[in-house]
Nucleic acid binder design. Structure first.
Lengths: 345, 345
DNA sequence: GTGAAAGCGCTAACAA
DNA sequence: TTGTTAGCGCTTTCAC
């Protein structure tokens, strides 16, 4: 059985090319002081034997590994799959690599971040979860830039967010304008900054307009719990006629409960809005009014900052704007094209 | 502005502990020959200064990096998000790291695999895309185990598949049993092994039962194209009454075209089945009959093999069984609970 | 422009 | 059990 054939080293190439090993290093170092023909010759020979500099040896000297670590709280979250694509593409374009860790289940990403720090990543991106401020301080001490996505503007950590509060307000305004009058909200996890920003901005807007605070239920970002919450809302003596859900994924659950369990016509009978604008939201099954989370621009912005190697102060804040998307799930007049209900009842 | 504070090295710890640097190395090496109290003392001091062995230095010597690379063809594919979670969890449990690359757009993962090989990954897992057999040979020559997921049983590459052909047959049998009689299929990408296995097994089964080959359209795994394909199928003079789609994701598109554009009642009017059993398939909006792709067991099996460091022969084959899931989308009798259509027309 | 030599942080013989 | 020594494969002075 064939053992792993050692990859050729710079030494091997040097011998073949009749130069010193240092020359080989220079040949592969952009901007190094080396004669063009020496370099060309070395590169030619290197290529012929399949030589590539060992990045780990290089990282020992340079003190940087070319690896960016990311930890994703919930890999099932559709938003972060789009994020992952953008991340991996952006990094490979920059000649960097992406190490992915998931923190499903655990409340913080501390274990994963510690692990990545020990692995000497050059930078960290935290998505859909949080890290302790102690760990955040450690990162800064070690000179490893960290950015958290959407941790809320109040936290004392470098933060890249979308304008969720504004989005929630636009959704609220739209619902009022459509003539809905009795509002409910289904929050995500009460401990989640994302959920709280969205829900509190929605609530505040309603209160600011002299409308009482919407009835609040909690869905914990989970489907089952959201369905329970929706059932509770729809079973009240005075039933809400418009529901705002902290995420699109939750809104789908709400829509299905309303439609299939309560026989309601989404839009005319009850308005339902979400947040994120994931792929499925535009599908006719949901046709969901929502506010787009600009995840790809956010990732690109994050990469730009992380790769610039400028130290990131804890007061670092960037806001990327999403966009309001009005769709059928909050349109009051009956849609003439709808074939869902032939009779009025 | 604070520069990156150099992480403490084994040397630093050695000096503080009054031992040789090699002793520090031994203290952190499981099973090394070292006195318990020496080790304890070193570990205590190491911990106090935040020492962790540099894995890149270690990898230089050991010749292995502890990194497993994966390349995902289509990061939007819900199946592979579940896969990613399982992968990352399994690897971190084994003390390994996961580098993720995406090959969206390009037909093969060759560029990404080359990149990962240069990065000295210990093993490779290829999902939802393919690599050239030349590159596969190179991996074997370099002693890097590679497993491709679902590349079809015919290919001469190490391969871990689900029993898709059997699944397609079970779906076909079920449709016949339900009384459907005019069949259509919507294939994924004609160049995709996954799609071809599923579709050809379905077709073969129908032909074997004396029913003609189903009408075939192609949806390229994409929503828009699948909708077009479905429109074409439903616009035929003799309309099919049951459609098999290569994936659940495509089946959703088919369902929505049938329901919202043609006003059909899914199940009674037209049977629609998919393949994969992703999360959304169980939702009432789709309630899709399908065959589960056992992606998590597949990942675990793949990890088991990849981490065992046994050379993987090109004839390597493992099949993990999925399960048939009958749901409402292929149930002929009208569902009494359905509130979708009050009138018959 | 090029080679010799030192050293990045670690592990693995080899002595002691 | 421990320290000493020699590298792993590379980059980076420092001479020439």
């Amino acid at each position: 059985m064939q053992k792993r054939a050692r990859k050729p080293s710079a030494h091997d190439v040097a011998r073949l090319a009749g130069v010193s090993q240092a020359a080989v290093s220079r040949a592969y170092t952009k901007g190094a002081s080396i004669a063009k023909e020496t370099r060309d010759n070395i590169l030619r020979i290197g290529k012929s034997v399949g030589y590539h500099p060992n990045p780990h040896a290089r990282s020992l000297i340079k003190g940087e590994t070319g690896i960016v670590g990311t930890v994703i709280g919930n890999p099932q979250n559709a938003v972060f799959m789009a994020a992952l694509g953008a991340l991996s593409k952006g990094l490979s374009k920059a000649g960097k690599h992406l190490i992915v860790a998931t923190a499903e289940g655990s409340p913080t990403a501390d274990a994963q971040v510690t692990e990545l720090l020990n692995y000497r990543v050059d930078a960290l991106l935290i998505m859909a979860t949080r890290i302790s401020s102690k760990l955040s301080r450690q990162c800064r001490a070690e000179g490893v830039p960290v950015i958290s996505l959407n941790r809320g503007l109040r936290e004392e950590l470098p933060n890249l967010t979308s304008n969720d509060r504004e989005g929630a307000r636009q959704i609220a305004a739209h619902l009022i304008e459509q003539g809905y009058s009795r509002f409910g909200v289904i929050a995500g996890d009460p401990g989640s900054a994302v959920s709280e920003e969205r829900v509190s901005a929605f609530t505040a807007y309603m209160e600011g307009r002299g409308i009482g605070a919407p009835v609040r239920e909690v869905g914990y970002f989970r489907r089952h719990e959201t369905m329970q919450a929706m059932r509770a809302l729809l079973s009240q003596k005075v039933r809400p006629d418009a529901i705002f859900c902290a995420t699109d994924y939750m809104a789908f659950a709400a829509i299905e409960v309303a439609r299939y369990e309560f026989g309601l016509d989404i839009g005319p009978d009850i308005g339902i809005a979400g947040f994120d604008d994931i792929r499925e939201s535009a599908w006719p099954s949901f046709d969901l009014t929502t506010f787009s989370l600009p995840i790809v621009p956010m990732i690109n912005k994050a990469l730009e900052v992380l790769l610039s190697k400028t130290p990131i102060h804890s007061s670092f804040r960037i806001v990327v704007d999403g966009e309001f998307r009005a769709r059928g799930s909050t349109i009051r007049r009956r849609n003439p094209r709808s074939k869902k209900r032939a009779s009025k009842r």
